[in-house]
Design a protein around this nucleic acid. Sequence first.
DNA 1: GGTGAAACTTTGTGGCGCAAAGTTACGTAA
DNA 2: TTACGTAACTTTGCGCCACAAAGTTTCACC
Lengths: 99, 99
Amino acid sequence: MIDFSQLDKVIHEKGRLAIMSLLAARPEWRFQDLKTELSMSDGNLVTHLRTLHKAGYVSLTKEHDGRPQTSYALTDRGREAFLGYVAVLESIVQKHKPS
Amino acid sequence: MIDFSQLDKVIHEKGRLAIMSLLAARPEWRFQDLKTELSMSDGNLVTHLRTLHKAGYVSLTKEHDGRPQTSYALTDRGREAFLGYVAVLESIVQKHKPS
DNA sequence: GGTGAAACTTTGTGGCGCAAAGTTACGTAA
DNA sequence: TTACGTAACTTTGCGCCACAAAGTTTCACC
């Protein structure tokens, strides 16, 4: 039986799932690039990133090359949590994929 | 790129995802069995089932063999929507599964 | 007629996603 | 040096929704 209760609630939300997926696929993302890629308002994006940061899943680096510029990356905990989440997805797919 | 916007919002919720997964695995479920399997309060379970029913994903059959007894099943639309949802999950897994 | 169970409905509460507008800091053009 | 623009926030407000708890209806059985 699949244990849906272990679906991490922080990750199991469309916006944050998309963010985590991007962060897992590339070591670092600038705020502006995330915003463009996700077509998300900056306020909304920042809020999701703060939620992920509070959970310890995302680290941020502030720089000031000309304009202020913040970059985001997965922490080890974040990668671990994401892979755990994906493992649950995989068990769902395994069970229901027509093959 | 993965299109997260096509993650069906009705299905993308832990409780309803669990329900849909059960309904997809067996042709019919009685309310009591769902309740036991999911450890969900009856009020909460009924609400989720109503949401799924309104979306056209679930059909219900009321019987009265002694106690009232309602059974639930996936509709064709429900199965289609669920498989579409699982297909998105699969694309996420494909992209991120370490292999 | 009273009890109990199934399957609801109702009510209330807290949390959350999201948009819109305001804020701060800084760098550039006039 | 003042005005403007942009990045990266914060704040405010709205509306929806998950969830629990309690009330309701129907029916079978004692």
